[in-house]
Design a protein around this nucleic acid. Structure first.
Lengths: 182, 182
DNA sequence: GTCTATAATAGGATAGAC
DNA sequence: GTCTATCCTATTATAGAC
């Protein structure tokens, strides 16, 4: 499926959530009429959201999980993650799709998909934290705290219309995740 | 205005956002027919959301800001805050209204209200952090980090359907906000 | 593959009885 | 104050031309 179409659909779901993403908005964002969207996504809005989630799953894989699993020191791998997060969240100006789609009807439809995405994310972070020298319980806790700070920074950024908290969270991320290498 | 009605409206806006909160859902949640809701809120859905925001503003004042400004040591004041947060967010099982209403159309309608609520919250946290011995720049930074961790924990709790991260954030909150009192 | 046109349903809002 | 009935618009979805 055309990646640029899905990008435009993502923008709408990301900023309006599942219920707020009307066919009119999706049509306008993509430049395709409703009927054309139904040609590409016979399942309608639900199938569009599924395609968007599948794409973000693959983006999380390439922008977040792959860098963490790449060869190199934990510190280098985490720097790859930080760069990926900057891209994925447009420097803090874009909301998280998982967050937006976990509200309301989206929660019912995609709850387990979303939960799974968070789990995979935490596992990958915990793995690099462990490689840096933390025991596995600490690594898991730090991984969760890193996700929390990213998600919280995105919420605060949207609420106050400034990306400063997101930038700072990314700056502190390596220090907060990895063991001191003295 | 009847507080219990607004509580029921809040539940809907909190879990569905502004656009997802349909009159049908609002009607069902309150047990009032649409026309009765319009009798109480002539401005319709927008006025209902305004009432909900006004109530949460007052809840934030009593559950969050007042404890922080109460007489007592910073540590005692922060403990009052932690208790207030537990109540406000139902131990981590409820999303933040400010977060839910800052999506989509809610952002357009209530953006500055929401931004103001976050500012007041940060200021109050920074004030108690400063009282505990931090310089004002550090106090502000720690206050923002505390809000970030609360919001992030609520997002992660919703996404994974567990309140464990929220509970842990509350446990660590005093340590993360206040200067060591040795 | 995309369009215009159109149906069917849901959403927001009002009128008027009680 | 709350209800039933109703209106108008928006939304989801489909049919059929090109």
């Amino acid at each position: 499926m055309d990646d640029v179409i899905i990008d435009r659909l993502s923008d709408v779901f990301r900023s309006h959530g599942y219920e707020g993403a009307s066919l009119s908005k999706l049509s306008e964002a993509t430049g395709l009429q409703r009927a054309s969207l139904y040609y590409r996504f016979p399942g309608g809005k639900k199938e569009m959201a599924e395609a968007v989630l599948a794409q973000i799953d693959s983006r999380i894989a390439t922008q977040i999980l792959d860098p963490l699993r790449a060869p190199g020191s934990p510190s280098e791998r985490v720097q790859g993650l930080v760069d990926g997060l900057k891209t994925l969240y447009q420097n803090g100006h874009a909301s998280c799709l998982l967050e937006a789609l976990s509200l309301g009807e989206g929660q019912n439809l995609f709850g387990s998909l979303i939960a799974g995405a968070f789990e995979a994310w935490i596992d990958a972070l915990a793995s690099v934290a462990a490689d840096s020298g933390h025991d596995s319980a600490t690594a898991k806790r730090l991984a969760e705290e890193v996700i929390i700070s990213i998600q919280g920074a995105l919420v605060l950024a949207r609420g106050r219309n400034t990306n400063a908290p997101f930038i700072r969270v990314l700056e502190n991320l390596p220090r907060n995740l990895l063991a001191e290498t003295t």
